[in-house]
Amino acid sequence: MDVSREKTLREPRVSSLALQVAKYTAVGKITVRNNLAYLYDYLIRSLFLLVILYIFAQLWRVTYDGIGTATISGYTFEQLLWYLVFAEAMVLSSPRLARRIEDEVKKGDVAYQLTRPVSYLLFQYAQYMGEAYVLVPVHLLVGGALGTMMFGVPHFGWGWIGFLLISVGAFTVNFLLNMILALTSFWIEETRGLEFVYYKIVFTLGGMLLPLEMFGGTVRQIADWLPFQCVVYFPSKTAVQFDAGEIGHMLGVQAVWAAVLTVCLTLIYRKGVKKLNVNGG
């Protein structure tokens, strides 16, 4: 081989952290811009959010009136409704991975992405976050419109910042869990059913339908030991009842789960790629 070419090729590439960050930030950014094209569709589709929030508003108004106290499990009626706005926004804004990844696995696109100097998982993560943060403002706007109509403009102050901060961890944990489910398509035919069931768990133990404080002893304890609370309960609670002391705890729990799940995801991904090698695409 030609010496000069040999040298330029062999020169260790300095993929510094900065370049890596720039790379995946660029992926995230381009996803945001690409998804802005769907903004109108997103808005139309999110109108259903108004129906469900309206029903919940009616149900809880009747409940608060019936009980006759100002708070239930520490939430005022206004706080509870805003909690539900944030909770629905978190769930509805989470991109659905199962169909996309299943297609990529089956058509072998997973393989083709490997011809580029990017990590498949980080690429997907950057895309996921990009899409989620296009959707969150849309859903908060639609849901918030109802909240504002009922209670006037909300004053969460630090709650907004807290929500933004915790939502990053929330989407990260949700991405990891969903990606693990989606990658099982290396072995099983249909993963959309699994995703469906997963979201039912998020609805309940993740605290989308009810804040976790409303649960009785054992159910609450179980929920505390599972990762689902990171996805919905943490960010929604932070938004409506900001507590600087709690933030540290929540971030800590999210970090632990993110670490554990990242290890699981990496193992599963490696096993899947290996299977691709053994059994073909």
């Binding site: 790379k23 930030t25 660029a26 992926v27 690409n34 094209a37 580029r116 100097p117």
Partner: peptide, 19 residues
């Protein structure tokens, strides 16, 4: 190429991906 964006944006992304 990214479907809803002009090619110049994909070029930018490639520049990042290939450093």
């Amino acid at each position: 190429l990214w479907y809803h964006l002009p090619p110049v944006d994909t070029f930018e992304l490639m520049a990042r991906i290939y450093e």
